[in-house]
Amino acid sequence: MLDFLSTVGRVIIAFLVATGRLVLFTANALFHLVTPPYFPRLILKQMIDIGYYSLPVVGLTTVFSGMVLALQSYTGFARFSAEGAVSAVVVLSMTRELGPVLAGLMVAGRIGAAMAAEIGTMRVTEQIDALVTLSTNPMKYLVVPRILAGLTMLPILVLVGDIIGVFGGYIISIYKLGFNPATYLTKTYNYLEFMDVFSGLVKAAVFGFIIALMGCYNGYNSKGGAQGVGAATTNAVVSSSILILIFNYIITELFFSR
């Protein structure tokens, strides 16, 4: 019995320690985020990595999601003769939910993993210590550019993804399901409100922050050679994916529950 209790206690303490470390790291990152100097070259490089090179992945994900959304809602809604709602379902689910969440998860896999692996390798090969000895703050040099890029690029990616996803739904609706293009577009436009898109972009910014933060945090604290870097990479992707889903609910609650 006592063994069991001490195990539970140890798990809880370990969890609290990990949470505390993450909070301190986040506070430290935020402090450096708002204090100069900045490294424009590095920020630009990260923006290109996150924003530009993620376009194909995000585009493919959203176009097929839009297509499947049109197909599914058509066959589902046909059961109670509500096929006309397809355009609204596509545009609302795309902008509010699927755009940000899918882009977030895809970028978490692509970018979060790369960040953790790169920074983790720098940690275990003493490159981060070397930065300190060269009078360069590693938080400013490594972490801030990535967080800034995540924060700004994810909303842009999601905006592009939203458009591509709605376009995917449109293609299926017109060419496969036989909707009238003009009516479909008018309905899409009429149902869409500013808040739908805006909430999605807020989500995207938060997800971008989470992805970069978890990638950097796990990489920064990795230890023990190749195995440690591997573990850091896995942790970065898993933790940022879970946090994305949790914060997706929280932000939805904040925006839409009245």
Binding site: M122, T125, E126, Q127, D129, A130, T133
Partner: peptide, 9 residues
């Protein structure tokens, strides 16, 4: 500082 493994970027 000269690091053991070089620690070059």
């Amino acid at each position: 500082m000269l690091f053991q493994g070089g620690a070059l970027f």
